[in-house]
């Protein structure tokens, strides 16, 4: 199939960029989207031009490295699929394809389609963990966890940290990412002692990093390749209100904890 690509090009270290047009006369429907870009890049190099920088690694939809806005949608037209798992059979002959990096204040562009997502790591540093020393754990079966809770925690923990939720949000909010981690840990008994300090610290850091506020728009859930549910944001908000009112520690963690 013949395609016309319009790709955002921004030089390393440059504050601005622009779209450039590339012809792709012979894309194969069985290629993955990134393989199509590989073919294009190899041609650009042979022509003495600078290849398009984009992030990718596992190409199995799990590492969260890849991500670009394809025709206005993070990760492209197919729901619940990362850009690396997208195949060319989702496009048709003659299509124009527009490629842009994640656009969000908290994700500065490094080059072309590559952005700096280290703000996510700093949100996790603020409390996205359970404080357990290596070697200090009780037997793994000492605390039974209802299957339903474990399954819900897993639903939230499936987040791959790609940043599509931020890119999709008109406010550039990281609420879905943050809520996924807070819910994953908050649904498990092991996560209770730090539950309310965690939500205060992580949400605080999210604000400091320049992410916008959540206005329940819902585009994050629609863009999420792992289908992380908006319900987790509601859960975060409930925890946040309780933590802010200062009741959380007394009600939920009578034994103390990092509160």
């Amino acid at each position: 199939m013949r395609l016309t690509l319009h790709v955002w090009r921004q030089a390393s270290g440059s504050p601005s960029g622009r779209f450039e047009r590339y012809d792709m006369p012979d894309a194969d429907e069985h290629m993955s989207f990134l393989e199509m870009l590989d073919v294009l890049n190899n041609r650009l190099i042979e022509q003495g031009k600078d290849p398009i920088a984009f992030e990718h690694d596992c190409r199995e939809g799990i590492c969260g490295s890849c991500g670009m806005v394809i025709n206005g949608r993070p990760h492209g037209p197919v729901q619940r699929v990362t850009a690396c798992q997208l195949h060319m059979r989702s496009f048709k002959d003659g299509d124009d394809i527009w490629l842009e990096p994640w656009r969000a204040r908290a994700f500065p562009v490094l080059k072309d389609l590559v952005v700096d997502r280290s703000a996510f790591d700093r949100i996790i540093q603020a409390g996205g963990y359970i404080s357990i020393r290596t070697g200090a754990a009780p037997d793994a079966n000492a605390v039974p966890i209802p299957k339903r809770d474990a399954d819900s925690a897993m639903d939230a923990a499936a987040c791959i940290g790609c940043g599509a939720c931020v890119a999709a949000c008109p406010n550039g909010s990281a609420m879905l990412f943050t809520a996924a981690k807070i819910s994953h840990l908050g649904l498990l008994p092991q996560g209770q002692p730090e539950r309310f300090s965690r939500v205060l610290d992580m949400v605080g850091t999210m604000d400091e990093e320049g992410f916008g506020s959540c206005t329940n728009h819902g585009s994050c859930e629609a863009a999420c390749p792992k289908g992380i549910s908006l319900d987790f944001i509601a859960r975060l908000n409930r925890d946040l209100i309780r933590a802010t009112l200062g009741k959380g520690m007394e009600v939920e963690a009578p034994a103390g904890g990092a509160g």
Binding site: I132, A136, P138, P146, K147, M154, L188
Partner: peptide, 8 residues
């Protein structure tokens, strides 16, 4: 203990 949600 770290919160890894193993199958149950």
């Amino acid at each position: 203990a770290q919160g890894v949600p193993f199958a149950r």
